[in-house]
Amino acid sequence: MTKKIEDFPQEIQQNLVDGAQQIFVTAFNSAVSDGLSEDAATEVAWNSLKPNYEQDADGKWHFKQASDTGIHNKAITTGGN
């Protein structure tokens, strides 16, 4: 059974910005399709947000600033001609 964001509790819907909602739902559905229980899939979904999102004091999840995510715009050079 594939879930949509509307299938989750209001708390989840209201506390996640749109991008985080999509990641949460995708991670949840993937985990369930891999055979995890809904509880385990929910944990996977929350953990999938943590690298790029953070929760503020009000419980809302926001995208982390680039310097906080470990993502750096670094050129990759390779050997060659």
Rank of each mutant, 00 (worst) to 15 (best):
Met1Asn: 14
Met1Pro: 13
Thr2Arg: 00
Lys3Gln: 07
Lys3Leu: 09
Lys4Arg: 10
Lys4Trp: 04
Ile5Met: 00
Ile5Glu: 00
Phe8Glu: 02
Phe8Lys: 03
Phe8Asn: 02
Pro9Gly: 06
Gln10Arg: 13
Glu11Ala: 15
Glu11Ser: 15
Ile12Ala: 06
Gln13Val: 08
Gln14Met: 14
Asn15Ser: 15
Asn15Trp: 14
Asp18Cys: 04
Gly19Pro: 09
Ala20Pro: 15
Ala20Leu: 09
Ala20Ser: 10
Gln21Asn: 01
Gln21His: 03
Gln21Tyr: 03
Val25Thr: 01
Phe28Gly: 01
Phe28Ile: 00
Phe28Thr: 01
Phe28Val: 01
Val32Ala: 05
Asp34Glu: 09
Asp34Ile: 02
Asp34Leu: 05
Asp34Ser: 12
Gly35Asp: 02
Gly35Arg: 01
Glu38Asp: 13
Glu38Gln: 12
Glu38Lys: 11
Asp39Cys: 06
Thr42Asp: 04
Val44Leu: 07
Val44Cys: 06
Ala45Cys: 12
Ala45Arg: 10
Trp46Gly: 06
Trp46Arg: 07
Trp46Ile: 07
Ser48Ala: 09
Leu49Arg: 09
Leu49Phe: 07
Lys50Phe: 11
Lys50Arg: 15
Asn52Tyr: 09
Tyr53His: 00
Tyr53Ala: 00
Asp56Asn: 10
Asp56Ser: 05
Ala57Val: 13
Ala57Pro: 11
Asp58Lys: 15
Trp61Asn: 03
Phe63Met: 04
Lys64Asp: 01
Lys64Thr: 02
Gln65Asp: 08
Gln65Ile: 02
Ser67Gln: 07
Asp68Ile: 04
Thr69Lys: 02
Ile71Ser: 09
His72Glu: 14
Asn73Phe: 06
Lys74Pro: 05
Ile76Gln: 14
Thr77Arg: 12
Thr78Ser: 10
Gly80His: 02
Asn81Thr: 11
